[in-house]
Design a protein around this nucleic acid. Structure first.
Lengths: 155, 155
DNA sequence: GGCAATTACATCGCATGCGATTAGATCGTA
DNA sequence: TACGATCTAATCGCATGCGATGTAATTGCC
């Protein structure tokens, strides 16, 4: 029987953990995080620190505000995280001269030096899944699309 | 040009945050968590507590070991979490009589009473994405498949 | 120009995740 | 049957996420 012929209540009645997209995303995200850990440990990065560096490897320089928008993380998460990157000598933090509310974040040479190794990690993950790169890309796009729709509702 | 014609190094060179399946899963998971929060707040649950309750709504009773396997979470995460559910009167914790190493977890009546509301949440999320239920189900299955392959590698 | 509203970042508190370690129960095997 | 290996929970420490709140800079509107 097609799920379309069921009411929301009937669907809810049959809902189990293994049918939930939220748990699939949650557990897949954690599985990928575990896959990365040995690689990121070598670089002295955690996963959230890694995605901050990804933005900086791409942009060279940014602001807390732009980081916050891009990573969909608030300052209460990013501030201590970026301070740790600064303490590790991977980024610099400085107030923007035009608008003192903004905090400029830039990768140091030491930070940029990690780019080559870091950018290989997602490629290795894709290979480890045994899927074609096209398949992974399609999955990535559909997930991003779903996320954007949810964030549009909330934001 | 097809990505198949590129070497891993060439792919890594072009890698950006928006092409990474890990960030798509990470940010989508967080977006779903945010979607659930108002609903779960009403029930006094956090998301990890919610998925523990999902297992109990399905099984009625389980053990820490089985919960750990099912949710792919270690005891260092589950122990304090389940203790909070116990303190809230939603579950009971007791040593297994046959094997004292195991801890039996069972939903109380109060815990089971939340099932109807809780099981609607994933249905509401699917509706909010604007996708067909079939589309969401397919996405869920592909994510779970990817996760399982990664976890199989890790052991 | 003056001042309330808005914006950007920071701080605090609580709840995960997880590596490392410990304690107690059970298993396997000589 | 003794006893080391294994298994299951629990504890500790550190790093996120995020709601609530605070503070300083900027904007907007009269």
């Amino acid at each position: 029987m097609s799920v379309n012929s069921l009411s929301p209540e009937e669907i809810a009645e049959q809902m189990t953990l293994d049918h939930m997209i939220c748990f699939a995303a949650y557990s897949a995200s954690q599985a990928m995080n575990r896959f990365y850990r040995p690689i990121l440990d070598e670089m002295g990065l955690t996963y959230p620190q890694f995605i901050v560096m990804m933005v900086l490897w791409e942009e060279g320089q940014t602001t807390m505000k732009a980081l916050s928008d891009r990573l969909i993380l608030e300052s209460n998460t990013l501030t201590p995280l970026v301070k740790k990157l600064e303490a590790a000598g991977l980024v610099t933090r400085a107030r923007n001269r035009q608008d003192e509310r903004l905090l400029d974040i830039a990768a140091t040479e030491k930070g940029m030096a990690l780019k080559r190794r870091g950018c290989m990690a997602p490629v290795e993950l894709a290979a480890a899944t045994g899927e074609t790169l096209e398949g992974v890309i399609e999955l990535q796009q559909r997930l991003a699309n779903l996320r954007n729709k949810l964030n549009a509702k909330a934001g």
